[in-house]
């Protein structure tokens, strides 16, 4: 899906836990996620901390979307 959307001309950032899968499917901008059942959260954290974690991840995706790349790049 990532690849097809990018093919249509839009930069896509893929937030995924299993980075090798993301690379195999051809995502170009990849932000590693927390865990499979909660890519952008962590039930072990208290609410505020979890929101902060999510915010950091989303800000990372925005940075990735603003970054010029020439090949698959993992924004860890």
């Amino acid at each position: 899906m990532v690849k097809e959307i990018e093919r249509a001309g839009l930069p896509v950032v893929h937030v995924a836990t299993v980075v090798p899968i993301s690379q195999t499917v051809g995502a170009n901008r990849i932000v590693p996620a927390v865990a499979i059942p909660y890519p952008l959260g962590d039930p072990k954290l208290v609410r505020e901390e979890e929101k902060l974690l999510r915010r950091e991840l989303v800000e990372k995706t925005l940075k990735a979307l603003e970054t010029n790349i020439s090949e698959q790049t993992v924004f860890a």
């Binding site: 959307i5 093919r7 249509a8 839009l10 979307l65």
Partner: peptide, 20 residues
Amino acid sequence: AREIADELVNDGVQAVILTS
């Protein structure tokens, strides 16, 4: 994804965050 992408482009979207 092709259908989604077409709609997004037509709707003036400039970037996509895709979560898996």
